[in-house]
C-alpha cells in the first residue's frame, strides 16, 4: 500500500492509524477487520495467525494485553474471558486485590 492510499484509509477510519503491534506494524483497524469478518475469531492465537500481531521480536510481550483489550471490548466481555487458543487456555485468572476493592 502506498503512503497516499494508507493516508486515505486512515482518514476514513482512524483505527488504521493506531499501531497496536509495533514489531509487525499492525493497526487496531486491521484487528477490528478480522473481528468484523464473517467468521470472527476471538482467541489470541487465531488472531495472531490471521493478522500477525505478536509474531515479531517481542513475541506479543507489548501487544498481547492491548490485543486482548480490543477483543474483549469488541465482544463485550471481560478481558479474562479472552483466551489463548480454546476455552480452557485462560490467560488471566480474575481481578487483583486492588481491583476487587475498586
Amino acid at each position: 500500500m502506498s503512503a497516499e492510499e494508507r493516508d486515505k484509509l486512515i482518514k476514513q477510519n482512524p483505527a488504521y492509524g493506531e499501531i497496536v503491534c509495533r514489531c509487525e506494524e499492525i493497526s487496531k483497524g486491521e484487528i477490528l477487520d478480522a473481528l468484523n469478518s464473517p467468521i470472527p475469531v476471538y482467541a489470541l492465537d487465531a488472531i495472531k495467525r490471521r493478522v500477525r500481531p505478536g509474531m515479531g521480536r517481542c513475541q506479543g510481550g507489548f501487544c498481547s494485553p492491548l490485543v486482548m483489550k480490543i477483543l474483549a471490548e469488541h465482544k463485550g466481555v471481560k478481558v479474562e474471558e479472552i483466551t489463548k487458543a480454546n476455552q480452557q487456555s485462560k490467560v488471566l485468572l480474575g481481578d487483583t486485590k486492588g481491583a476487587q476493592e475498586r
Binding site: 506479543g60 510481550g61 507489548f62 498481547s64 494485553p65 483489550k69 478481558v79 479474562e80 483466551t83 489463548k84 487458543a85 487456555s89 485462560k90 490467560v91 488471566l92 485468572l93 480474575g94 481481578d95 487483583t96 486492588g98 481491583a99 475498586r102
Partner: peptide
Amino acid sequence: RPAGVFTAGTAQYYVNILGKMPTK
C-alpha cells in the same frame, strides 16, 4: 506451548495496569 508463559514485564502490565492476575 500452553497459556501461562509470560515475560515479567507483561505480567507487570496485567497486574498494575489492567488489575488482573496472570497466576495463582
